[in-house]
Amino acid sequence: MKILVAVKRVADPNVKVRALADGSGVDLANVKMTMNPFDEIAVEEAVRLKEAGRANEIVVVSIGPEKSAETLRTALAMGADRGLLVRTEATVEPLAVAKILKAVAEAEKPDVIITGKQAIDDDANQTGQMLSALLGWGQGTFASKLVVGDKAIEVTREIDGGLQTVSLALPALVTADLRLNEPRYASLPNIMKAKKKPIDERTPADYGVAVEPRLTVVRVHEPATRKAGIKVGSVGELVERLRMEAGVL
């Protein structure tokens, strides 16, 4: 079984990002970048399937600038076999990402595509769903458990109010949720070994996909700062203030 995993390079979730002064976007100059945490879970799941003998090849793909090769390298150090960088400096919207990944899938012919449920930068949560629709494959989104069979894959999904288990005929697409697994740290020897694993490079044009944005970013601004709260002396005072000042009672 061959698995294709799509990964995105995003701002490190532990970093506090700021909006650019002109409101045109987020200031990413000198910000530490890392693999999207949900994509890391996707890579880990693929590697575990390979270690369990269920998969024999893992290809990781990323769409983005030159530095995205570093994100691919991390995935290779975690255990993926080879990488594909679709290089572009442009901001690529989910539909264009899905179209590129569709073309990659048609070339690579994987049995399963796994990707994160969403990227933590724009939190769009669209790519997986769009890709499955474009390919005409079954989709198991928000996966918290995978059981891979020969012809089908059983996906436990985290949905509002509980868990839902769906069975998908292969080939199929899965998007990883937080509880699917806990990704490993890339070990230092494996980072050095990953240096020897191949990363191919293409451009969106190679797949005939136009990446020009269809959406216009009107404004990016930081959340309004909350005013400091106050401590009240008694329940009586609390009720009084809620009634008279806050006007909620």
Binding site: A69, E70, R73, A77, Y185, A186, L188, I191, M192
Partner: peptide
């Protein structure tokens, strides 16, 4: 180097 950065990052996450 790229490898040095990745090794440093992995070690820092563990720490």
């Amino acid at each position: 180097s790229q490898e040095q950065r990745l090794m440093r990052d992995s070690c820092r996450s563990f720490v």
